[in-house]
Write a protein that binds this DNA or RNA. Structure first.
Lengths: 205, 205
DNA sequence: CCATTTATGTGATGATCGATACATAATACA
DNA sequence: TGTATTATGTATCGATCATCACATAAATGG
């Protein structure tokens, strides 16, 4: 099972993370091969040998982002004891991770809705589904809360979920504009101020 | 006062609007000169003669956008009789204009926070100030409401204003992902559900 | 040792980027 | 009419884009 030819002289995972940073910061098209190879510390033939193409590297970077960076944000949706705490945790974790020092501000997957121009249809579809996944996860959490009699069954779940995802996506743009963590937390708390009203039992439509 | 040389053979304003559409749709860097000249129906020398450079054209497109497209969104902040109606009008007008048929979804200035990569410092500053202007306008409207005894004087005005701008910026991304006008209006109403809580008198910090 | 396999660095590919040189066309002024 | 002035189309500029050919280097299997 040992490797056959000349061993790779760089750490593939570390190089992928550097590439992720570049794509995260600049988007797909604006991240040039020169930017990538410079950040990764390798020459372009090594990049192509290890990752295939710029778009395949982008796709790997996206998946690496999802696997490593988005857990902190999504975990509260699974672990928080109440639906309210889940949504509050989701937004507060976003405020924290969107302003991590040394990392590009905002969420790479959210921002890709705007800066993944020039990417192929398949990659575009993957990104869109990732973003839609957040809405689904929140809907699912709300459905669970209804099943557990925490919330009434008459709610507009897609509407509520979309509202909170929209706030989180707006926070990505705010982070890009330099909003601090406390400011994003204030915004998150502002969004939670709608909770009681949004989760009151509603008349049948 | 008459023109001296050969008259321009295209409508400068119409060409600018076509260019605006391209920048609006794709951002600065991803909008190539070929995209622009094709959409404008002119050759590149005509573009350079009339607008100077790609970046100057972008700047004109931004200003044209601000002068023509953002009025509908900002008008309620000035005209609505109450602060609540002002904010609701701001978000509902955003839901409408972000999904206008035949136009790129979302707000060009908001999206520029993400897709104006590669633009010069001065242009970048202009765009950032435009986005900050929305927060200021909302703060100002809230201040007026306090002066008119509609709202208590103990509110966190920057926080409230940033919250509503954040929702509106998130709506731009939602629009990019294909959200319909009714869906955006639901999100806007979700944001307004926070109003009563946000504008309740608060204990001194 | 030699043969095979994989990775690397150098350097170049055609394509496209933003931006122009230049000759010509079309207008105003004299 | 001629001259000055501005715009247009063609054709191209050097630079950079993503990608790859190729010779060499470094490992394993025999």
């Amino acid at each position: 099972m040992a490797e056959r030819g000349r061993p790779r002289s760089f750490d593939r995972q570390a190089a992928l993370e550097r590439a992720m940073d570049v794509f995260w910061e600049r988007g797909y098209q604006a991240a040039s091969m020169s930017d990538l190879t410079e950040a990764m510390g390798i020459n372009s033939p090594s990049l192509y040998a290890a990752f295939g193409s710029k778009e395949e590297l982008y796709r790997e970077a996206i998946h690496h982002f999802a696997a490593t960076e988005s857990d902190d944000i999504l975990a509260p949706l699974q672990n928080a004891p109440t639906a309210r705490a889940a949504l509050e945790g989701y937004l507060m974790a976003s405020a924290k991770t969107f302003t991590r020092p040394g990392r590009p501000p905002g969420c790479m997957v959210v921002l890709s809705a705007v800066n993944a121009v020039g990417v192929g249809d398949e990659t575009s579809r993957i990104l869109r589904e990732m973003r839609a996944g957040s809405v689904s996860m929140i809907e699912e959490r709300l459905r669970r809360a209804i099943a557990e009699n925490e919330l009434p069954g008459s709610l507009d779940l897609p509407g509520i979920a979309s509202y909170y995802v929209t706030v989180q996506q707006g926070m990505s743009i705010q982070a890009r504009d330099g909003a601090s963590r406390p400011m994003l937390e204030t915004i998150a708390q502002g969004a939670m101020a709608a909770w009681d009203c949004l989760t009151r039992p509603r008349a049948a439509a």
